[in-house]
């Protein structure tokens, strides 16, 4: 079995890992690095529970190989500390069981960073890549819009 030694940049830290060619980034995050915030939901890119940011864009870590990620800047939910999006999710009850939450926050966090003027249509396009089975999505919509609104007021 072929293995590779990689240096990954995750949450502003350099981490050395030994991985198989076929290991997904999700598996390496969870198993090798103990970063279990990204969740396996389908391992097929359908549910978005494993969403992280790679070079500030939302990516499904179940669809990326770890060996693709050298030299890239990876941010997981563990790299988020009291961000406006996390605060908004808490305030608006934008989660119930919490299993999809890391993925939703990473997606939404990237959305406000990359598309600070997102309208409803753009929010739909971005947030449709994740599934939440507990809420009616309305709470998530409120949380994201709250952060977008506050950001536009600051500007």
């Amino acid at each position: 079995m072929k293995v590779h030694q990689l240096e990954l940049r995750i949450n502003n830290e350099k981490r050395m890992v030994v991985v198989r060619s076929a290991d997904t980034l999700l598996a390496v995050l969870r198993r090798n690095l103990g970063l279990t915030g990204a969740k396996p939901g389908c391992l097929n890119g359908d549910c978005g529970a494993c969403t992280i940011n790679v070079d500030r864009l939302p990516m499904k870590s179940c669809l990326m190989l770890a060996i693709e990620c050298e030299g890239k800047e990876i941010t997981t939910i563990e790299g988020m500390h009291n961000t406006p999006m996390q605060q908004a999710f808490v305030e608006h009850f934008a989660f119930q069981c919490g299993y999809c939450t890391s993925g939703f926050i990473m997606n939404a966090h990237s959305l406000i960073h990359n598309r600070p003027n997102a309208d409803n249509q753009m929010m739909k396009e971005w947030l449709d890549s994740n599934i939440c089975r507990c809420t009616g999505y309305e709470e998530i919509e409120r949380a994201v819009k709250d952060v977008l609104r506050k950001n536009s007021q600051i500007q």
Partner: peptide, 20 residues
């Protein structure tokens, strides 16, 4: 606010598969 809220928005909330 739910008691486990900050665990759930920081990825520190642990589910069964997170234990290894």
């Amino acid at each position: 606010v739910r008691k486990e809220a900050w665990q759930k928005v920081t990825g520190t909330a642990k589910y069964t598969d997170d234990y290894a």
